[in-house]
Design a protein around this nucleic acid. Structure first.
Length: 643
DNA sequence: ACAAATACTATTTTT
DNA sequence: TAGTATTTGT
């Protein structure tokens, strides 16, 4: 067969093999910077060139952006048939399958997806009820409870196991926690709520218990490709098994880059893949095309300390380059200043801002730097951490919008009613009960008798709901009506309302892109914009030359000319929480490995000399233990003063 | 009885 | 800083 693309010429031998083997199970161990994306992209093109229908190919990735990017690139090297390939995250794929087959799993009236904070709010309500019952000491907070429940699902363990393993100090509350978990499950079923984990659970149920559905889905998607396989959990691995009916399944991953164990990911999925699929062919991509020699030398030393790994050694042909540098800055602010100065110097020497990234372990690590960047007028985007979509004012608007789709949405009513004067938790729930029992849509709001003060606050809300009609107005018009109603509340509630009003404007520009309310809401929970709130309204301009600030988790798969890793301070990275747990410590090690392997030409680690840690009462003054004893000819050390 | 204001405390990463 | 527990106010 003659192909338009010269695969053999454009790929190295291992990559070519991975593209060339299109049938049967295939495991690709792809080291950092080894052209993993390139390989997947060419493989998509190859399948399409072989005459396979694009809609028969399913590409599961970690973010929607990643799959879009790959399909776009595949289209560029072949043609736009590649855009027809089905791609997305496990969660978005689960969503579309479950929508299609909702009635098969007993959800005849559909369901709505709740995000993490919705789920926590629901848990919080149940926790309050439970507080009266349990006697001794305080229950875990809602966030912790959410973590416990989610981890149990994603690791396929019981609540007992999770508490004994990870939260032994809460074991005396085991019964109460169990009760809350049961109540949570019940509430979700009653209100047709699916949390993130439910999407995976119900997809597994659908595939497992309904052979005809599974048959149908498998006969649609003949070719399955899964990216970032090291970060899948047990359910996802099971789903891959169920989907790979005809064994044409390729998974790509790197156990050294597994950084999502905290949410149940297990890189042993990679190791077990050949057991699950007998006859699996294994290909290793070991040539690094990204980093210069000195950087690769350091990252190889870092990952060498990992206990458990698929062994591989990356090599590069990129010669030259300077040694990575570990800088003692003296203080947090001096660290920020140092980074700013280096960025300005690089920029003067012709490195564009968008080729420079500052990476950190936790979102708040960049606060001081952000102030310094603003002072110097250096434009930046921040990725990861607290998201635009998670800020209270955006969630307020979305709650109103959600009610237009489902007037019996308990969480949304609760949220928007609490915004009103003289209405607290009790009244809000009473009103919801009334609406729910009336069964007459949101006009049920008019039925409930209230004190005059309270009904006065409700009047404007009633007005809003009687003036809008989701069947007649476009998505963005609905949004505008809600914003108009909400603005006085916003001004009253927040001192910084001008900034937040801008966010609402940005939300309107996002809504403009949708003509379907349901799709809009699903996207907002499944694939929300990943940038942080205050720069959200600028984030859509892709060519903007701006510095990147990012959590390491959100930097996965990306690369820059120069990378700064700040707060490389023992006690922060690894954090004091992780140091007593070997598994957690290993994950921190992989995390610093992922961060360092993002760099192409220049790599800086910085730490503030001495920091007092209020929580542990310790003085932190050592560089990260992962870097501390690396020889000077691999990692150069200096202080900001002597640079 | 319930809402609103105030005090206290523990602090990561994300679909 | 935000979530929760506690106190004060209507």
């Amino acid at each position: 067969m003659k192909f338009r693309i010269a695969y053999k010429k454009e790929l190295n031998p291992s990559q070519f093999q991975a593209v060339n083997i299109t049938k049967g199970p295939l495991l690709v161990i792809a080291g950092a910077g080894s052209g993993k994306t390139r390989t997947l992209t060419y493989r998509v093109a190859r399948l399409v060139e072989e005459g396979i229908s694009p809609s028969a190919i399913l590409l599961l990735t970690f973010t929607r952006k990643a799959s879009q990017e790959m399909l776009k690139r595949a289209s560029r090297i072949l043609d736009n048939r590649c855009e027809g390939v089905a791609g997305g995250t496990f969660h978005s794929f689960a969503y579309s399958m479950l929508r299609k087959y909702a009635s098969r799993i007993g959800f005849n009236h559909g369901f709505s997806i709740i995000d993490r904070s919705d789920s926590e709010n629901l848990i919080s309500m149940l926790r309050k009820e439970m507080k009266g019952v349990s006697k001794s000491g305080s229950l875990p907070r809602k966030q912790t409870l959410g973590n416990i429940f989610s981890r149990a699902v994603n690791k396929n363990l019981s609540i007992e196991d999770i508490i004994l393993d990870d939260y032994p100090h809460f074991s005396r509350h085991l019964e109460s926690i169990h009760a809350i978990s049961d109540a949570y499950r019940k509430q979700k079923a009653e209100h047709n709520y699916f949390d993130y984990d439910d999407l995976l659970i119900y997809l597994e149920v659908l595939l497992k218990d309904h052979p005809d559905v599974r048959e149908k889905i498998c006969s649609t998607y003949h070719y399955l490709m899964v990216d970032e396989y090291q970060d899948t959990n047990k359910i996802q691995a099971e789903i891959v098994c169920l989907l790979a009916g005809n064994n044409n399944v390729m998974v790509v991953g790197d156990d050294s880059q597994s950084i999502y164990a905290f949410r149940g990911a297990n890189f042993e999925n990679i190791i077990r893949f050949p057991e699950k699929f007998p006859g699996t062919r294994i290909i290793r991509l070991e040539e690094n095309y990204r980093s210069v020699q000195p950087i690769l030398k350091l990252t190889n030393v870092i990952i060498d300390r990992a206990r458990q790994k698929y062994s591989k050694t990356l090599f590069t042909r990129k010669s030259g380059g300077s040694l990575p540098l570990l800088v003692n800055a003296g203080s947090e602010n001096r660290q920020s200043q140092f980074v700013v100065e280096r960025i300005q110097a690089l920029n003067r020497n012709g490195v564009p801002l968008n080729q420079i990234a500052v990476l950190f372990r936790a979102s708040f690590h960049s606060f001081d730097l952000e102030i310094e960047l603003n002072r110097e007028g250096i434009p930046f985007v921040k990725v990861g951490g607290f998201k635009f979509i998670e800020s209270a004012h955006i969630k307020d608007i979305l709650a109103h919008v959600r009610l237009l789709l489902n007037p019996y949405d308990k969480l949304s009513w609760y949220r928007i009613l609490l915004l009103l004067d003289n209405i607290g938790p009790k009244t809000a729930l009473d009103i919801f009960e009334s609406i729910s029992s009336e069964q007459s849509g949101y006009s049920g709001l008019f039925k409930k008798k209230l004190k005059s003060k309270q009904s006065k606050s409700l009047d404007r809300l009633k007005n809003l709901f009687s003036s809008i009609d989701p069947s007649e107005m476009s998505v963005v018009r609905l949004g505008e009506a809600v914003v108009k109603y909400y603005t006085p509340i916003l001004i009253n509630k927040y001192d910084d309302h001008p900034k937040r009003a801008k966010d609402l404007e940005h939300l309107m520009t996002i809504m403009e892109r949708y003509d379907n309310l349901e799709r809009f809401l699903a996207d907002m929970t499944l694939e929300p914009p990943n940038t942080s709130s205050h720069d959200g309204f600028l984030a859509d301009k892709p060519d903007d030359d701006r510095l990147i600030l990012s959590t390491i988790h959100s930097a996965k798969g990306l690369e820059w000319h120069t990378v700064f890793i700040i707060w490389a301070l023992d006690g922060r990275f690894p954090s004091t929480h992780a140091v007593h747990d070997e598994k957690a410590l290993e994950e921190e090690l992989r995390l610093i490995y992922v961060a360092a392997t993002r760099a192409k030409e220049r790599l800086f680690f910085t730490y503030p000399g001495t920091v007092y840690d209020r929580i542990s009462g310790m003085v932190l003054n050592r560089p990260s233990r992962f870097l501390d004893d690396i020889p000077d000819d691999i990692l150069e050390k200096c202080s900001a003063m002597t640079f």
